[in-house]
Structure formats: C-alpha cells, structure tokens
Design a protein around this nucleic acid. Sequence first.
DNA 1: TCAATAGTGTCTGTTAGACATTATGGA
DNA 2: TCCATAATGTCTAACAGACACTATTGA
Lengths: 213, 213
Amino acid sequence: MTPVSSLDIVACTVEERELAMLARTAGQRTRELPWEVLDPLAPLERSALRIARSVLGEAPAWVAQLGAYGDRASHPSKCALSVAFVVIAPAGTRAPAGMAWVPLAGDSKLPARQRTMAADVTAMLRVRMHTAPIAFRLLPARFTLSELQRMYELLLERPLHKASFRRTLQASALVEATEEWRSEGRGRPAQLYRYAPRSEANARRSLTFDFLG
Amino acid sequence: MTPVSSLDIVACTVEERELAMLARTAGQRTRELPWEVLDPLAPLERSALRIARSVLGEAPAWVAQLGAYGDRASHPSKCALSVAFVVIAPAGTRAPAGMAWVPLAGDSKLPARQRTMAADVTAMLRVRMHTAPIAFRLLPARFTLSELQRMYELLLERPLHKASFRRTLQASALVEATEEWRSEGRGRPAQLYRYAPRSEANARRSLTFDFLG
DNA sequence: TCAATAGTGTCTGTTAGACATTATGGA
DNA sequence: TCCATAATGTCTAACAGACACTATTGA
C-alpha cells in the first residue's frame, strides 16, 4: 500500500542575489525537494525541524508551515497528500553532498506537486516578511544595513530609498549597532548590525488596501 | 483501521458585531466543526468547496486553506492528520438545522485539534485582509460605508477615523456607489456601495516592520 | 426641535522619497 | 588624486488623523 502522506521541506536561502531552495540532484534532469513519509505520532513542526536539521546539518533559522498539497499531481512518494514546510537557512549556508541550491524562480525540474510548493514560497515569504523577521533570518547574525536593504529589495522586488529605509528601521527599534566594521572592496567600510528587537511600540497606523480582485 | 486524514471547515461570518463560526451542536456541552474524511482523489480546495456548499446550502463567498494539523490532539475522526479550510459566508447567512454560529473568540467547546484551528483563524483573517477582500466577503453585496468601516474595525480590533477611512477607500478604487440609499432608525440615510475593484495602480509605497520577535 | 447618523472640507503633524553633502576607505 | 560606498542632513509633497461643519432623516 502506498504511504499515507509525506512531509516536504522547502529550504530557502539567498544565493547570488536571488532566492534559492535546496534540492536533491537525483538524475540528470530531475530534481527533488527533501521529503519523508509523515510520522503520524509527532507534531508536524517538530518533524519538519528534524528533517530540516538532518538535511542542512544544523537547525534552520526559521520554520513555518506552507500548507497541505493534495491534488493528483505527481509526487515521488506516491502519497495522495503532502504537507509542506518552509525553512530558512542564512546566506552562506553550504549545500550538503548530493544537493544544491537552485533558484526558486524559473524551471526547477521538480515533480509537479513540489513545483507547486516552490511556486507558493515567494508569495508566502513576501506576505510574512511584514510580520516575521524573514529578511533577518536570511542574513547572517552580523550584517550591514546595505545588505539588509538589498534583502528587503529582493523580497519586495522593488528598490527602496536608502535614507528612508534607515529612518524607518531606526524607528522600528529592530537592530542594534555593533562595534565592528567591514570593508568590502572600495568605498567607506560599513558598520555591522545585529537583529535585536526591542519590544517598543510598533503599531501600524495606516490602513492599506493592497488588493485588486 | 482509522481513516487517513480529515478535511475540516471553519465557516466564518459576522454575528452581533463579532466573528462567528459554524459548529454542530452535537451534545449538551460539546460542539464540532464540520468535517469529512478526505477524498484522496479530489483536489483539496474542490473538496472544501463541496463540503462548505453542502453545509451552508450555498457556495461560500471566499475560501482559503488554513493549514494542516497533525499533533496528537483529539479529533472526532481519530485521524492523525487534518487539513483545515476557512470559508466565509456573508453576514445574515442562516445557520442550517443542527448547527449554530458560535463566537470565534472564547470557549468554543470544540475538540482540541479543532480548537487550535479556530484559534488560528482570527490571525489568518487579519493578515489576509490586507491582500484579499475579506471584509467585503463578510458583507452582503450591497453595504454602507459605515458598515464596511465597522467590519474593518472588527477585523483590525481598533477604531478607524471616518474621514480618513473614506479618503483611503476612495483612493483605492475598490468600491462603486449605487443609486440606492438605506435608512436605519434615525439619522440621515446612507448610500449603498458595492465591491467593484477597478484595476488601477494600488502599490504599497511605505515599508512596515510590523513585528517584534 | 432634538437626537442621531451620513458625509465633507480644512488644518496640522508626521513621514516617505528626493536631493545634496560629508565621511572614509581602496585603487 | 579619483572613485565607490557609507552615512546623514534638509526640503517637499503626500497623507493620516483631528476637528468642525453641513445634510438629512426619525422621534
């Protein structure tokens, strides 16, 4: 009998200035997201964390459920139902042997159901980034404000204004300057910051109608 | 053998100025969300729509997957895994025989796993309302701007400024005035509007950091 | 006439974005 | 020295929220 359902992991990071996911390079032209047959006794998120840790070699920086996928689209497990989780690994995390970071956008050569999952991840991260520290989890613990801004621009897919970005960030009380500076190529060195949210008021004042249909 | 997994429906509406969900009033002190054993051959959303239609007697105004729930918490089906969907019925929809609208907040007397689902719905609607017409789907086709504002205040759990709300709404090009007016008790009659999004630019300009940890 | 609600015009403080300028390193 | 990047100050247009006012009904 075919297994009941699978648990799939879309592990995301940033590679060469675009979002990428971890995929097994199974054959010549087929790839596959890491998955396991679902353990019916363990909580879903615990299982997701365990699988992610075993694949990445370390605990991911963030975990969230993407959703359940149950169309008839093909899946390597032959399961009728798959539960997908998104996990985040900081930029610079190495892909383990037999796996590679592949761009989240574009032809991923995944089985149909996993392709659907991958297609949903970008939208999910873009929504969640406003209420969860996605951009910070995609960065290493120490980062420059320019790196943070580039991460936001990557997720939002639009350029941001530098002075305005820093002003808003300052007001949000989410980062803390360190004493370290980093010099990259030419130009003035940048101060390193770390994510250190101070629980001050951060209430959204304005109302947005961000939809059309 | 116990069934593989269940598909649960959290059907939401607004009753007496608060969010409510449709529950079977099984026994004296137990309630239950509508659910069915999952059909492994049908797409999940199609199944959710079918169940919602059979329960409500009509098609819901909005559907979205809430997520998969797979802890060991109790569920009437004894399934190890449940996939939950949120559907919306406009205010005024009657509860069918044997069911009732019960407040989404507060002690719902549901089985543990379904209580978890219900607890997640409010947060989900509050996030999604910024990118989907949740408030409009919770209203009948024709509504006054005061009713719309009260719906937004209910979802956001904070008061909104009337003139500002209408200005922002006007700019969003989401509603269209009808020729009808409605008089309720004293006071000047209100013009009725309908949801008619015109696909004009509606880009979010400002960046928000709406999280703390 | 009064009370209650709908709807609108004006003012003001806040802020996002534009622009310009200084600061500081490497080539 | 020139160039590239970091970091910051100032200006302005846009806008959210406050306030006040008019409009229109039922009691």
